[in-house]
Computed example of a mutant assay.
Amino acid sequence: MVARDYGQYDGITRGLELVGERWALLIVRDLLVGPRRYGELAAGLPRIPSNILATRLKELQEAGVIRRLPRSRVIVYELTEYGRELEPVVLALGAWGFKAMADPREEQIVTPDAMTISLRTAFRPLVAADLPPTVYAARVGLAELLIRVDAAGLDVQRDPGPDSGTESGVADLAFVAGPDIHRIISGALAPDRAIASGAVEVLHGPADLLERFARTFHLAA
């Protein structure tokens, strides 16, 4: 499958021919979080036309990047081993793009899968290894996540539900934030100022754990 032919012969050119079409890497980004049904992919990419999503999925299958599998009487899409090799590429691109992020436009949203990959990108395992294990319940825009940090390990669950959040006492810190969370991750907004200004609302747990969060997840802008 060659969706676009640049007329050059090298690895970068070939890579762009496989995943360089619009929306392709965002589909890969969401599948790095886990297998998704067609409707879940469409919901996570609300501006993608249905015909483009179908085309990209077909192209990525033909390229050996994803596969289509039956699971519990539904069809899901998941990355192949070859497709999962794109993870460091996606994380590196996210770190690079983070440096150019300005304030969000009014129509821009934060999806659960996008926020999960942002956290993976910003995670500092060497810092986390020296901190106590911590569980964060975070609501950022449309994303509701349970974030477990244990030594150098990170586990992020989407939409954890009532049995995984503050009601059961699992989360050490539960908070709500808007797009300004990227300023906390970049270091442009100190955690105490984020709380004082209302950029972050602490729902449960010691407020000073937000400083631990900022140390654990950091990308210099």
Rank of each mutant, 00 (worst) to 15 (best):
Met1Arg: 11
Tyr6Asn: 06
Gly7His: 09
Gly7Ala: 08
Gly7Lys: 05
Gly7Ser: 10
Asp10Met: 03
Gly15Met: 09
Leu16Gly: 02
Glu17Asp: 12
Leu18Glu: 15
Gly20Pro: 11
Glu21Asn: 10
Glu21Trp: 01
Arg22Tyr: 05
Arg22Lys: 11
Arg22Gly: 02
Trp23Asp: 14
Ala24Cys: 07
Ile27Ser: 03
Gly34His: 03
Arg36Leu: 14
Arg36Trp: 00
Tyr38Gln: 07
Ala43Thr: 13
Ser50Leu: 14
Asn51Glu: 15
Thr55Lys: 10
Glu59Asp: 13
Gln61Asp: 08
Pro70His: 07
Arg71His: 12
Ser72Arg: 15
Ile75His: 01
Tyr77Met: 10
Thr80Glu: 07
Tyr82Pro: 01
Leu86Cys: 04
Glu87Lys: 15
Pro88Ile: 07
Pro88Arg: 08
Val89Met: 11
Val90Arg: 05
Leu91Ser: 00
Gly97Thr: 08
Gly97Lys: 09
Lys99Cys: 07
Glu106Cys: 00
Glu107His: 12
Thr111Ser: 12
Asp113Gln: 13
Ala114Gln: 10
Phe123His: 04
Pro125Arg: 03
Leu126Tyr: 09
Pro133Ile: 02
Val135Gln: 02
Val135Ala: 06
Tyr136Met: 06
Arg139Asn: 13
Ala143Asp: 09
Ile147Phe: 00
Arg148Trp: 03
Val149Cys: 05
Val149Thr: 02
Ala151Met: 08
Ala151Leu: 09
Ala151Ile: 01
Gly153Leu: 10
Val156Leu: 04
Gln157Glu: 14
Pro160Trp: 00
Asp163Tyr: 12
Asp163Met: 11
Ser164Phe: 13
Glu167Phe: 12
Ala171Leu: 04
Asp172Met: 09
Phe175Asp: 01
Gly178Lys: 07
Pro179Glu: 05
Arg193Cys: 05
Arg193Ser: 14
Glu201Ser: 12
Leu203Pro: 05
Leu210Tyr: 07
Arg212Ser: 13
Phe213Leu: 04
Thr216Lys: 02
Thr216Leu: 01
His218Tyr: 14
Leu219Asp: 02
Leu219Asn: 02
Ala221Gly: 15
